[in-house]
Amino acid sequence: MLNVAHLTKRYGALTALDGVSLHVARGEFFGLLGPNGAGKSTLMSLVAGLRAADTGVLTLDGVAIVTADPSTRVALGLVPQHIALYPELSAVQNLRIFGQLYGLHGTVLRERVTEALAAVQLTDRGQDQVKTFSGGMQRRLNLVAALLHRPKFLLCDEPTVGVDPQSRNAIFEYLERLNREGLTIIYSTHYMEEATRLCSRIGIIDHGKILALGTLDELLTKLPFEEEIRFPATPTTAGLAAQLPSHGELLTLDGIHRFRPRPDYKLSAFFTLVESLGLPARLFTSQRPTLEALFLHLTGRNLRE
């Protein structure tokens, strides 16, 4: 459906997107995972036709997305990262305006506005000015404002920033439902939990480059270990830590050692070593690696600085 090939975008000397290529199929829930400044919003704005790329190919259903040609945008919905609503107007007025920009009118428009408000539990606040809404409420309205025209393809740029866990869940469920009903979604976030929960396929982006692309399982197999053992970095564990690098990868972050054993290094050997050093077993937790670990592995940096 969406085809992106060798896309490059510069802001002056800064290269915000550096040869990005990806493909999103119809019905996918595609996650774009990356830290601040990775280029997520830039990619979204190019796909939404807000900006023109410097080089590269960008097509939606085989049709090139051109800034000057509004017709390609009808099938598209954009949830901007920042609240893009008229604060002085009511929720209903805002929704009506954005619906009308897509050519909706009459009963259809009225029904869609009512539905949209209900979908994000804002029915009883419909007549209130948007500026009187809480941050989370504005976020929810910001999301549904992009859905009035029933796009085939939705671009969600970090739609849950500042939303409480309950509302966040409501948004997730809503998006998942829409996705089941056939909506293709690109969802950008810097929360690996969100990407893990929602997305069928994930692209990891940093410094304008796609570092890895695939389903969660595919991505995790890129890690050269299947397990990660964590233990506190204290003087008592220093002796152990000194011995580990010869058996695998050891990273220390936030006072926690993360040991990723090489595939040929047996866990039993590790625990024998622990025992011989007289360290208590409760210090050690073992877990399946996460996207965060993958990001760390790919970039040497944590996803969230």
Partner: peptide, 12 residues
Amino acid sequence: AGIFQRVLAAPV
């Protein structure tokens, strides 16, 4: 206010 982003994402 960033509203043009939404307006321009529409066929405008």
